[in-house]
Design a protein around this nucleic acid. Sequence first.
DNA 1: AGCACGCCGACT
DNA 2: GTCGGCGTGCTC
Length: 798
Amino acid sequence: MIAEVIVDVAAHPIDRPFDYAIPAHLQVLVEPGMRVKVPFGNRKVLGFITAIKDTTAFDPARLKPIHELMDVVPVLNEELLDMAKWMKKQTVCFEIDALQVMIPSALRAKYEKRFVLNAPIEEIAAPLQAYFGKRPFVRAQEAVEVYGLLKKELEKGTIVADTDISQQTAVKKVRMIHITDSLETLESIEIRPNAKQQLKLMDYMKENLGKSIESSQMQKDAGTTLPTIYSLVEKGAAIINNEELYRDPKLQSEIERKPSLQLTDAQQIAFDAIDGSLSTSKTFLLHGITGSGKTEIYLQTIDQVLKEGKEAIMLVPEISLTPQMTLRFKERFGDMVAVLHSGLSAGEKYDEWRKIQRGEVKVVVGARSAIFAPFRNLGLIILDEEHESSYKQDDSPRYHARDVAIWRSEYHQCPVILGSATPSLESYARAQKGVYELLVLEQRAKNQPLPEVEIVDMREELRSGNRSMFSVPLAEAIRERLERKEQIVLFLNKRGYSSFVLCRDCGTVMQCPNCDISLTYHRSTEMMKCHYCGYDEPVPHTCPECESEHIRFFGTGTQKVEEELARLVPEARVLRMDVDTTRNKGAHEKILSAFGEGKADILLGTQMIAKGLDFPNITLVGVLSADTTLHLPDFRAAEKTYQLLTQVSGRAGRDVLPGTVIVQSYTPEHYAITLAKDQLYEPFYDREMAMRRASGYPPYYFVVNIQFTHEDLMTAASYAEQTVSYLKGQLSANTLIIGPSASLIARVNNRYRYQCLIKYKKEPKLAEVMQQLIKIYRSEWIKKGATLAIDMNPTSVM
DNA sequence: AGCACGCCGACT
DNA sequence: GTCGGCGTGCTC
């Protein structure tokens, strides 16, 4: 028997199966989808078995045997193995990357170099002996200072180098003590009268007959020690056992289960349409304005799927995976739900994943990667807020969860629901063409009116002498709400709004030495930081160029707004929510719940507050500048602005109190802003589609972005140039090839970035041409230190 | 990607 | 003389 293995080496020449002999003792155990340790060249690596076969095209005499089997149960099933092959083609990634992204990071390999003793310890140099304590090895990291000595031993063969491979996080185990349920057994046990500890523990056990208690807990409760427990275990009072434990099993039973809500007529129509197609691979686009009750439709559809004995995946963007959201699912489905989000530790994610793999849960709620949940009998996939760009992974494998969802729906013959108040143009266009079935919810579920939106022309404000970031109407509205004890949300687009340091004498803005981007001022740490490469340095007191002391912090970060707000309304209690204040685990939730409890009047934040904020007392939403996303050099700028404004407006007036939204803009006449005012999606769609058609962007054209980086500007440009002329020769005449041009941020980490763009409608040879391009890159450019990244269907082209 | 093999300059 | 620089080639 021979196994095809995809090894854990992400490199072009390695990106294919390698055949290995399966040793006799493993032959009954091996299955595709299991992880194995295999010899590869002169080292050992982890790999995935993708197939098992009887013959090989390779010289059978030179086959190496699998070194070790890592799993008893495959971590990937046949569906996911097939999908990896599809992803490799679809996204131009390494198959190993596709496989790795499907399993929890805890299962990914950890390689650690070690020096292993290969002779009695007395035979090695004396200074080295101390490094090996009782262990037969030292980690290479621990022994850097005696590297020279080690090298000599390596030559003698008294020490050998080795790589230890393990998975990153293990299954958590606890020592459980199962006390016998028979009082007679306990009473028949003889304990010497002077063994006070044992007698005390015996009393404890008699009180807890038949119970299973964690040993640490028992030690605490009974005031005893582990050896004492062991002595009673030996006498037959209890059984000791190491057992698997799920990390933090959030006491499901404490969450009160809640029944379904009554659907409105509109919800019912949408529900019926989906319910009638549960065994087809149809894709539905559920277009419902904010607050129209999409979630209730999801919940009831999932309920139907569960009744049929199938499973469901519910994807949400990471930022809207709030405790409120997960609570809602747990209330409905109890312990049938696993939740996967970035706030979990690797171990916790692994545990949630195992619940799915073992069939202990039937519903998964999670961010992008939850689309790979190893369900076997999938009945429904939902992508809420389907337009969100976070559904596309921005490094390899650059997959879009929507595409994976549709692939899985075909595999399982189950429907996909794409839900959004502001669908992506791609999805809406498909719905128009009848590829997806469009379902519309036009009314808010509680029938509240849409909030009133006022657009303030900031140019007027400037003209009338108001140079602050708060327009007169916004400032007034804020004061008014404060008086009425209502709550306010102020929203600041993060992009383009980081604070920087400017010298007022020479005009210098502090730049990152490694990247073409200005450094961002971080007040909490008093550091200047580069958001691209991580470079940081202390805030200077004088200008680094002209040594002037007239330097000032410029720009409008949330911190800056906070300061100005303090001058405007000193009495207001302000909560700030941005990357700085939410860095710690759970900080996000804390801020939100504090705001919900009315501990602050104003919530000030970036994108992350645009989602899932559902508090009845919010009656004013202010958008400080709607323009920042609008003028980015990206074909999706208008779409993103429209989506953001709609999303943000939806935060106001969600309950009985009517809401007002004030949007400040320097280009208030732009259609993305005027049409978002009344949530006129269709007109926006038509306008934007016309723009896309004219400029040759999705959904009219497919786009591929190819980016080069190199230490030398001219080299990067030259490879991009060569690529453009190569592509022009290979691709069809009506395909547009744009560039090469420098990327928006032309240098990151001291590497120059050049890119070119392919826009095509039909290009049957594309995959092949990309493979050819990779071959050229591999055979020539890679050696010269270039990198190449191909992004099929990028969400943005900046 | 790693790692070994292999062929030329500055040190004990 | 040797240590070590990184070019080249291979990995079932």
